Simulated scan of single mutants.
Amino acid sequence: MKRVFMATMGAILGAGLLAAGPAAAVDEPAGYRMDGYRSPTPAGLSGATTVDTAAARTLIEGGQAIPINVMKLDRSTLPGGPWIMAKPFHQIPGSVWLPGVGVGDPGPEMTAWFARHLARLTGGDTGRGVLFYCLADCWMSWNAAKRALSLGYTRVYWYPLGSDGWMEAGLPTEEGRPLPFD
């Protein structure tokens, strides 16, 4: 009886998994993603190297890429516009958090801020590895990596699983501190 029940449950679960199938592939757009940032992303980004968790870890631990967290935050309307953090956010250790640089059209001030910090982080070396991430199914990191390519960076890595994939792998995190917008 138990064997029949297990076989039946296995068949039901298997049918459900097969019926659901893999998520539909998303085509890589020509421009930036302008809205709906938390949705399925393309399999890759032309000009960049798409990496999984193991490759991201190897690049970061080997010092071959600077991890850049691009999770979006809102800014206060107070003078200096500090970032508003409703709760702590965990990121990959050693990351630099540049909030908002992954929106479709960040505007000239934010784009200049992004370019300045990339130049500072890489010592002006556009061949220095930079690894962009956000959360899983988030276009922010895809947009930021694409923007880094447009700024002339040649060793751009995109980690689409982001901090979600990092934590699912049981890897350590640290509390993120966004860089101030200056």
Rank of each mutant, 00 (worst) to 15 (best):
L121G: 10
R3D: 10
E168C: 00
G104N: 11
T41K: 13
M167W: 00
E174C: 01
V26Y: 01
P93N: 11
L171E: 12
V26D: 06
T111N: 07
A65R: 07
A169H: 05
G127L: 01
F5D: 09
G104I: 08
E168N: 05
N69V: 02
G14M: 08
G176F: 01
G102H: 09
G127N: 13
W158R: 04
S150F: 09
G176K: 01
G16F: 00
L151D: 02
F132G: 02
A86V: 07
L179P: 13
L73Y: 03
P93V: 11
L151H: 03
L171C: 10
P108D: 09
G14C: 05
P99I: 01
G100V: 12
P93T: 14
P67N: 06
L73E: 01
A19F: 06
Q64I: 00
L98A: 05
Q64R: 15
P99E: 03
R120N: 05
P42M: 05
A65T: 04
A11E: 09
A7H: 04
F132I: 04
D137F: 15
A86M: 11
I66W: 06
E28L: 06
L131H: 03
R75D: 08
G36K: 13
P106N: 06
Y37G: 12
Y32T: 09
S76F: 06
P106C: 10
G102S: 10
A169G: 10
M9E: 14
T53S: 02
P79T: 08
G94T: 01
G165W: 00
D105R: 08
C138D: 15
L135M: 11
G104P: 13
I12E: 15
L131Y: 14
R147W: 13
L171D: 14
L118T: 06
G63S: 07
R155E: 15
A20V: 04
A7W: 05
G107K: 02
W113C: 00
P93Q: 09
E28F: 08
R120H: 06
K2A: 12
Y133C: 00
P178T: 01
S39L: 03
Y159C: 00
T53P: 02
A144P: 01
